[in-house]
Design a protein around this nucleic acid. Structure first.
Ligand SMILES: [Mn+2]
Ligand SMILES: [Mn+2]
Ligand SMILES: [Zn+2]
Ligand SMILES: [Zn+2]
Lengths: 146, 146
DNA sequence: ATGTTGTTGCAAATGATTCTCAATAACAAG
DNA sequence: CTTGTTATTGAGAATCATTTGCAACAACAT
């Protein structure tokens, strides 16, 4: 059994929730996609398998509480998630011009944040860093057209 | 004239947009509130002055593009903003249990982020850091009730 | 003062997410 | 492997923050 499935199962049991066919399929979909995904993408991924969009929406919070998935960013009024098992924490750089999303490692920042957390007795669950601005490609185009 | 108003005016002129009565009122409302606010709060703040909620919504992106306001966080399906003129950048700590939002200084992280930005030729506009977890008050209550 | 062009309030539309409910599936116990 | 209990599901309706269309109006350059 995959690592993510057993972690999910463990979480569900701890909450006296059931491991259903639909939930397994949503979980698989979330780990089969290697980019940011929204509820719709997951539903799309398992279309034909008779899992409703409502169930996808209902499963997402479970995956988050189980520590398998986290909210990555919000774009065009939709929430985008990413799986987080064996994936290093990272920053998100959002270009306001082309809407592209870049990622970079986060490592060096973690100890600093953990220190801050300790000093205020805050227990960190997830870290989310977004930097908005203009990417080099767009900056280049700007210059070219001047 | 207030610093924020002249900055707004400058931005509007640069875009050939007009400085209207409604826009001035929304700007004032945004700087009169010293907590996170959503569109509704701004509208509430200037109620009776005949500014529609639609106009508040239309003005918010302008204030953001002008560098006067930024998205602070999303809560209960709504966007919350904060003004950013003379306010130091800060982190947001969100307690998943009591929903409280704490803020701490960001300073030490900025040079690190700026370095990362430089190395990928990304021009930073706004930095947004959210850390979710459990605050000390809630952690304490948990222990008390065990 | 006047014309041009952007802006507004209002109401209707949008669209992601949530909810309701009757039918069904998971699973613990025997 | 039955059965009873309780959680879950799909379908569609409901929610509700945000956006939009439009005709009347306001800003501002000249
Ligand atoms: Mn990511
Ligand atoms: Mn803040
Ligand atoms: Zn770009
Ligand atoms: Zn708390």
């Amino acid at each position: 059994m995959s690592e993510q499935l057993s972690k999910f199962q463990e979480y569900l049991q701890s909450q006296r929730l059931k491991l259903t066919r639909s939930r397994k399929l949503v979980l698989e979909a979330a780990f089969s996609l290697h980019e940011h995904f929204d509820a719709e993408s997951l539903h799309e991924r398992i279309k034909g398998l008779n899992v409703s969009l409502a169930t996808v929406y209902r499963t997402l919070p479970l995956l988050q509480e189980a520590g398998l998935v986290q909210l990555a960013l919000r774009k065009d009024g939709r929430d985008f998630f990413e799986h987080i098992l064996g994936h290093p924490k990272h920053l998100h750089w959002l270009c306001e011009s082309c809407q592209r999303v870049y990622e970079t490692e986060l490592e060096e920042l973690i100890p600093i944040l953990e220190n801050k957390a300790k000093s205020q007795r805050f227990t960190i669950n997830t870290i989310n860093i977004h930097i908005s601005g203009i990417c080099w490609k767009c900056r280049k185009n700007e210059n070219d057209s001047q």
